[in-house]
Amino acid sequence: MTHLPDHMLNGYRNFITGRYVDDSARYRSLANEGQTPKVVIIACCDSRAAPEVIFDAGIGEMFVVRNVANLIPPYGPDGDFHSTSAALEFAVQALKVEHVVVMGHGRCGGIKAALDADFAPLSEGDFIGKWMSLVAPAAEAVAGNSLMTNGERQTALERISIRHSVANLRSFPYIRAREESGELSLHGCWFDISTGELWVMNTETGDFERPDLGNGSSD
């Protein structure tokens, strides 16, 4: 009989006898009344950069979309399949979220592949290569900068790609309209896995800055 790996079953056992018991009323409420998150986060698939953990979010607080390198393609209503665009459509149009956050991270494998001219496709379909072509012009420019180290080029493209994705968000008519009306805010941030530091994109300059955490906020 095939079953889930033991560590997953053990994890579920801990959940159902611990966290679920503590939050059972919340789960029942979400099941009966539906979800009403205020934030949608587009994050990377990387197992080391989980938004719910980084932002200490409870169940139902964030609508999370994860793909390779947290990229957002430009608006493209055609006959192809668009999972990220579909999730954004639901979050913005149906859930009426108030914030869209593009969250990148350090040491991103997708970004590393985009910078590597010798990167070999992992399969005949080369889905990664096709997906990462969204940042190909920027990758080519950054890769050609001989004054930067490999690590500096990697970090630079990780942050540039976030700005690029935020710009692509505005190519969606309903996102642009809700932002212009003040109903929706767009954000970018970058998480350093090795230090735990969070850098937030300045919406006016595009620079990434360490936020002043102060004593906490109710927002």
Rank of each mutant, 00 (worst) to 15 (best):
R28M: 11
R28C: 11
G34N: 09
Q35M: 09
P37E: 04
P37K: 05
K38V: 01
V40N: 01
V40K: 00
I41D: 00
C44W: 04
C45Y: 08
D46A: 07
D46E: 06
S47V: 09
R48N: 01
A50V: 15
P51C: 15
P51H: 13
E52Y: 01
E52A: 08
I54K: 10
I54D: 10
F55M: 07
F55Y: 14
D56R: 10
G60M: 09
G60R: 08
G60Y: 10
M62R: 02
V64Y: 07
V64T: 13
R66D: 07
V68W: 02
A69G: 05
N70P: 04
N70F: 03
I72W: 00
P74S: 07
P74W: 04
P77E: 14
P77H: 06
D80H: 14
S83I: 14
S83Q: 14
S83R: 07
T84M: 07
S85Q: 11
A86E: 09
F90E: 06
A91Q: 01
A91N: 05
Q93I: 12
A94H: 15
A94I: 12
A94E: 15
K96S: 15
V97T: 01
V97A: 00
V97K: 00
V100S: 03
M103P: 05
H105P: 08
C108M: 08
G110V: 12
I111C: 15
K112G: 12
A113E: 07
A113H: 07
A117E: 14
D118V: 02
D118I: 00
F119A: 14
F119T: 06
A120D: 07
P121K: 00
L122Q: 13
L122G: 15
L122D: 06
S123L: 02
E124R: 12
D126G: 01
D126F: 04
I128F: 13
I128C: 06
I128P: 03
G129H: 05
K130F: 06
K130M: 08
V135M: 07
E140R: 11
V142C: 10
V142K: 07
S146T: 09
L147R: 09
L147V: 07
